[in-house]
Computed example of a mutant assay.
Amino acid sequence: MDDITLPKAVENFIAATNANDANALAAVFGDGATVHDDGKTWTGEAEIHEWIQGHLIDPKIVLTPTSFAGDRLVASGDGEFPGGPLSFAFVFGIKDDQVTDLAIDPV
């Protein structure tokens, strides 16, 4: 990650994920944000909190960025889940240093 320049919102997302900090993760998302992951969509604060807990906090995900271009981060994700580490693409919509939309797909 030394040579990868990331927008502040993406830096905050990675730092909060790697710290396993649900409150800091929730603060990364703006009002009315949407997350698309595992074929489902989570919208708004309550649903995104549910997604954060189930998909990032409970499995203790740690992200290691490998590239960033445009709005797309590719990172290796490891944690307490079978088959890890796995590579994922995170496509961020960002406004005013907050995530407005996030789509995650395996790479």
Rank of each mutant, 00 (worst) to 15 (best):
I61Q: 11
D58A: 15
N18F: 11
W42D: 13
E45I: 00
T5A: 14
L6W: 02
I48D: 08
V35I: 13
T66V: 08
G32T: 11
D58Q: 15
G39R: 06
A16F: 08
E11Y: 11
G39Q: 11
G54M: 09
G70V: 04
T43Y: 03
L73N: 13
L63N: 12
N18P: 12
V10W: 02
W51Y: 13
V35D: 01
D58S: 14
A69V: 01
A75C: 11
H55V: 06
F29S: 03
G54Y: 03
K8M: 08
D3G: 03
I4F: 05
T34K: 11
A33R: 04
N23K: 02
D21L: 05
F68M: 00
T64E: 15
K8L: 13
G44L: 14
A9R: 05
N18L: 07
M1R: 07
A22G: 09
I14Q: 15
G77T: 05
T43F: 10
A15L: 14
P65I: 02
H36E: 09
G39D: 12
A16I: 06
E47L: 07
T64G: 07
L63S: 12
A27Y: 05
M1G: 09
V35G: 03
T64Y: 05
I48N: 11
R72L: 09
D37Q: 08
L56K: 00
T41Y: 04
G70I: 06
P7N: 04
R72E: 12
N18H: 06
I61T: 15
D37H: 13
G32L: 10
E47V: 02
V28K: 02
T5L: 04
K60E: 15
S67K: 06
D3Q: 07
N18V: 02
F29W: 09
F68W: 02
T5C: 03
M1N: 01
H49P: 01
S67F: 04
L63D: 07
V28H: 02
G44S: 13
H49G: 04
T34D: 03
H55W: 08
N12V: 05
T34E: 13
G39M: 08
H55Y: 12
A33S: 13
I52D: 02
D58W: 09
L63R: 06
V10N: 03
L56G: 00
A33Y: 06
I52N: 03
D21E: 05
K8Q: 15
W51D: 04
V28N: 03
E47S: 12
A15V: 15
G54H: 14
G32S: 11
G77P: 05
Q53I: 00
G44I: 14
A22E: 06
A16K: 07
N12S: 15
N12C: 01
H55Q: 13
F68Y: 07
D71R: 05
E11N: 14
N23P: 01
A15I: 13
I57D: 03
N12L: 13
E47N: 08
W42Q: 14
G77E: 06
N23Q: 03
V74I: 12
A15K: 15
T66A: 10
L25V: 09
I48A: 14
F13V: 09
K40R: 02
A26V: 08
G32C: 10
